[in-house]
């Protein structure tokens, strides 16, 4: 079983959780993910590592409460156990590209953090652009400040923290200044799409970390199909990182919506019997 040893609420609906999983922690690399099941009737959901310790044998992830499964997850406390946790899955993010901008939007910051850390460790020159709707939703700012970054640029839609505006504005400035060898965008599909569109003009190679719907996470089902450069790839084993200039984001966003009605009804059903007000 996989015991929860850490839980922290980062904003209204965003939580960080640490789980004992020594074998997984030993192999985890930045950009990889795990799949967990909350309980015996739970679905398998992929979550990217936000941190891990091989030595202490734990992994961490950050999640936003969006449906029944993540809702259930918010109700687990330190000492409780997850039914299942498997990983590390997917390919690690490539590091060593030189001057890099890492864009983390919303909960995507959770993935951007170990990625930026790994890039720093590889000697890259890393600028991080953190974006959120407002200051309350901004996460991990302190953790990023503790990394040897070239610069940390914070953006919020309403200007309640950092610059007012979208992450694409500072990204474009960096491109214009010729300050980038590579860009990496992690966040909602729509944000990654616009980041890729921004860098395309300047021919700055751009990696995006995709989050298609998954079941097994090992290449066995094809639920995670994404179109990249006109070819079908499996997000879980060929990715999750892909060339942002070649990804069909419209298809990705459409495929992410298949089960919205089911998810809504499942969450409504679960919330009926739940006293919390999340």
């Amino acid at each position: 079983m996989f015991r929860i040893i850490h839980k922290r609420q980062l904003s209204d609906a965003v939580f960080e959780m640490g789980v004992e999983a020594p074998a997984v922690a030993r192999k985890a690399r930045a950009g990889q993910f795990l799949i967990l099941r909350v309980d015996e009737t739970g679905e398998r959901i992929p979550l990217t590592f936000s941190d891990w310790s091989a030595q202490e044998g734990w992994v961490r992830f950050i999640f936003m409460r969006v449906g029944a499964t993540t809702h259930k997850l918010t109700h687990l406390e330190v000492g409780d156990e997850l039914a299942d946790l498997v990983g590390p899955l997917g390919r690690p993010t490539e590091v060593g590209s030189g001057r890099v901008a890492v864009v983390g939007g919303g909960v995507g910051a959770a993935v951007a953090y170990p990625v930026a850390r790994a890039m720093c460790a590889a000697g890259d020159d890393v600028t991080v652009i953190l974006g959120a709707r407002n200051s309350e939703l901004l996460i991990l700012e302190d953790e990023f400040r503790a990394l040897p970054l070239k610069e940390l640029i914070v953006c919020t839609d309403d200007g309640s923290a950092g610059r007012k505006g979208l992450v694409t504005a500072p990204l474009k400035e960096l491109c214009e200044a010729g300050a980038l060898d590579h860009a990496m965008a992690i966040g909602p599909a729509i944000m990654m799409k616009f980041c890729a569109a921004t860098t395309r003009e300047f021919a700055v190679p751009t990696t995006v970390s995709l989050n298609p719907i998954m079941v097994d996470g090992t290449g066995m089902c094809g639920a995670c199909r994404v179109s990249v450069g006109g070819e079908t790839k499996f997000g879980c084993v060929d990715g999750p990182d892909f060339d942002g200039h070649a990804v069909d984001f419209e298809e990705l966003m459409s495929r992410q919506r298949v089960y919205v009605d089911d998810e809504r009804s499942a969450d409504a059903e679960y919330s009926k019997g739940c006293s919390c007000h999340l």
Binding site: T69, V215, D216, C221, G222, Y259, A266
Partner: peptide, 24 residues
């Protein structure tokens, strides 16, 4: 769907019993 995905959702994940099982 691939048959694998369809059958996995229904058999392994028991999607026929949604929402008592969480997988749709």
């Amino acid at each position: 769907y691939s048959a694998n995905e369809f059958l996995t959702r229904v058999n392994l994940m028991k999607a026929y019993d949604f929402p008592h099982h969480d997988t749709p």
